[in-house]
Amino acid sequence: MSLKFKIAKRVLTLGKRRGQTAYYAIQEEHPHTTWAEVEERISQSTTISRADLRAVTVALHDIVSQEIRAGRSVDLADLGSFKAVASGKMMDKFSDVTLESLSRICVRFYPKHSIRDLHKAIPLELLREEHHPRPKKGKKSKGTQPGGSPNPSPAPGHGGGGGVGI
């Protein structure tokens, strides 16, 4: 398997190249391994039943949640660790630094080096095909206006080329 890329285009809206069409590689969606498939593979390669694995997963979720809420990081052996992080905004005076000057707190996962370095072994493949994005769920088609009438086609080189924002 490899990460596959197609070629997308976008009309630039800023800078010296404004109005020009630029082309770039964009990653295609790749196959997804579901949790049910992971459960099955673990059950086949160990003596752990799927029911026991589900119970362990629920318990692990509860423990990680409790520890994160308590402000601790959680080490998950060879996988990596979870921790809650936030950073402070730059303030002009010492007295201006308050809890309100902290950026929103979030939970991050930090993979161990053995997983983080896997990217070095992933082959890349550029398919010489144009990228056509899938329509977003719950969005109206770009080809129709409110009321159902079709939009006029854009002039060549001015949008409508299936590119995505970056």
Rank of each mutant, 00 (worst) to 15 (best):
L3D: 02
L3T: 04
K4M: 07
K6G: 01
A8K: 03
A8W: 03
K9A: 10
K9L: 10
K9S: 12
R10K: 14
V11N: 10
L12F: 10
L12G: 04
T13D: 07
L14F: 09
L14Q: 08
L14R: 13
R17E: 08
R17F: 07
T21W: 14
T21D: 10
A22E: 12
A22R: 14
A25S: 12
I26Y: 08
H30S: 06
H30L: 09
P31M: 09
P31E: 12
P31H: 11
P31Q: 11
A36T: 13
E37Y: 15
V38N: 09
E40L: 15
E40W: 15
E40V: 12
S43V: 10
T46P: 02
T46A: 05
T46Q: 06
T46H: 05
T47E: 07
T47W: 10
T47Q: 08
I48G: 01
I48R: 05
R50K: 15
A51S: 13
A55P: 00
T57L: 06
V58Y: 08
L60V: 03
L60K: 02
H61T: 12
I63Q: 08
V64T: 02
Q66L: 14
Q66V: 09
I68M: 11
A70S: 12
G71Q: 04
V74T: 01
D75P: 00
D75N: 04
L76E: 01
D78M: 01
L79V: 00
G80A: 03
S81I: 07
